[in-house]
Design a protein around this nucleic acid. Structure first.
Lengths: 343, 343
DNA sequence: CTGAAAGCGCTTACAG
DNA sequence: CTGAAAGCGCTTACAG
């Protein structure tokens, strides 16, 4: 069933059918009604390839998500996909390994499928400076700041990670902790985007409070997965038994810490306090409930989709917004009282 | 840059360029090399819409996933998407609410975008009988049995849920439990596919062992999410304080039970044993580690993709396979000793 | 308001 | 082995 068949059935030309389908104003009401009734009677759906070929445009919005089993990015993904669907947009979702170069993949997809736009859920800033110039369509980087990159077609929506990390550490300090371990991502592939600001925010606050911070000693990298964070946390806790609190760069990592603490018979929060980052739903259901720096996923998703669609349709300039975060203090944090005399 | 430009640059006709691109054998080596070098030098990518229009075929495989925040289906989704990508297939992923009619959505997508095939991650069997006839392309239902539906274009790959549930309950019985609560999905939208066999398997084993089972009393429905399972589990445990073990139809529900048990100061497993279903990665990292009927997601994903692509290319008959499961007995189960004298 | 016709970028018989 | 040409299903100036 093609537009030609409909035209024949309706006794009009294909051009007229096309105009009806595309809601062109220049069609008489009677013709419109006749054609519409035949289209719906026949259940006709125009061939999307032909339309796209003519319009020289592609339908999809590609979403690249970094890291499998990353509950935070997955919840963002779902929200974004639902918002896109509500706007009648088609999402083409690609899961990538945490260490993969999302921009390189985007360049390929850009060349092969010419999507209307890209949404990057995570991705290393280094990779953007290296090859994003080859991506020609409006794009959005979510959860990381792209303002310094200066690409006219790349917006970004993220949390102020420096401030969030600072706030997390300030919270631990306020609860009396002085020996604080930090568990975060690998510098090599999350470095500039995520790990670096979250580490800097933490380090600066510690130093402001006269607590020396040595990244080599006090920071442990991990992939954002349960098994890796479990291993990494365990190593960290064994190596630094004096630690009374941990700041993790992701709630997924907090789960690993929780597990490692149990292995070592450390009670949370009595022996070890934990604060994470992201604010995934699970943090309200863990034992104990996990404190976290909550990113506003609703706002991140909404603004990303709004901005992308707006720029696709109306060609505006890229924007860079920081979405407010909040610190959720929950059961995994408790006061530390100095029993060992050191400060 | 189109095929015409390449033809001009190479000094050949567009037909020849097309043959090179499509690896037709009838091209001389010298011509092939010349054209290929120009294509790669120019970074030319053929317009996919034009190809698809000619081939009268569409590129995508649509994946419909039921339930957001369903960690089990999400891990399946990731595996499937990665396998599809390895085969050069494009996945068009749509997240649906747990209560949505995935088949209705598929019928729409089928008409509008003509995907090559569908993969349903979850979905109610009732909805398939009602409207799957309108889906014309090869499809796969994962995690549920479609063999009774008799659609020639619908394969299914699942676990033997009746047997899995029976085995879970047998395990609890072997550990001395007699008062067993069951937490599962809503009959109204997961009924025939998931809840019904898992409930029947459990009920039959209980009755074999002379333990009466009344669905109204001993079964509590919940959505497959943390907050809902938490509420439902809490209600169940408060209403039936005699329960010493819970069988949940999903590990996500077990998390809710864990949380509800903690609220009520019940220790797991000392006061309450838990066994779930699915085998999500998290069950190895919870406190305590959660026993579960582990579905083989690797095999489910692999077989689903293999079968779908095979049927798309070679038009074979649909198949229905049961993928073996395994029962993982972990820390959330302990022996129950009869202290109250009843049996 | 409507039709006839060109053309989007590609593929593939048909000739040679 | 290669070219010229028709055609996939649609859209849209151009006439009228």
């Amino acid at each position: 069933m093609t537009i030609k068949d409909i035209a024949k059935l309706a006794g009009v030309s294909v051009g007229t059918v096309s105009r009806v389908i595309n809601h062109h104003p220049d069609v008489s009401d009677s013709t419109r009604l006749k054609v519409e009734s035949i289209i719906s009677r026949e259940g006709f759906e125009p061939n999307s390839n032909a339309r796209l070929l003519k319009n020289n445009t592609e339908s999809d919005i590609a979403i690249l998500i970094k890291g499998t089993q990353n509950l935070f990015l997955e919840s963002l993904l779902e929200k974004i996909q639902i918002l896109l669907a509500e706007s009648g947009e088609n999402a083409n979702i690609v899961f990538l390994d945490e260490s993969a170069d999302a921009v390189k993949t985007a360049v390929q997809i850009n060349a092969q499928k010419h999507p209307k736009g890209f949404i990057f859920l995570g991705g290393d800033v280094k990779n953007f400076s290296r090859s994003f110039a080859q991506v020609s369509v409006p794009s959005v980087l979510v959860t990381q700041d792209a303002s310094q990159l200066g690409f006219a077609n790349l917006s970004s929506f993220c949390t102020d990670d420096y401030a969030g990390a600072a706030e997390a550490v300030r919270t631990l300090l306020a609860y009396g902790h002085r020996k604080i371990g930090i568990l975060g991502g690998y510098m090599s592939y999350n470095g500039e985007g995520i790990t670096s600001p979250r580490l800097a925010g933490a380090a600066d606050v510690l130093q402001e409070h006269g607590i020396p911070f040595d990244p080599e000693e006090d920071f442990t990298p991990s992939r954002f997965s349960f098994p890796d964070s479990h291993q990494a946390a365990r190593k960290m806790l064994e190596k630094h038994p004096g630690i009374t609190a941990v700041f993790t760069h992701s709630d997924v990592l907090s789960v690993g810490v929780l597990r490692a603490a149990a292995d070592l018979h450390l009670r949370v929060p009595e022996d070890l306090s934990i604060i994470g980052y992201d604010g995934i739903e699970y943090t309200d259901y863990s034992l104990p409930r996990l404190a976290t720096v909550r990113q506003n996923t609703d706002a991140l998703a909404r603004r990303s989709v709004e901005d992308l669609l707006f720029r696709i349709c109306c060609g505006r300039e890229a924007v860079h917004e920081k979405i407010p975060f909040s610190v959720d203090i929950k059961e995994s944090i408790s006061h530390h009282t100095e029993t060992d005399g050191t400060e």
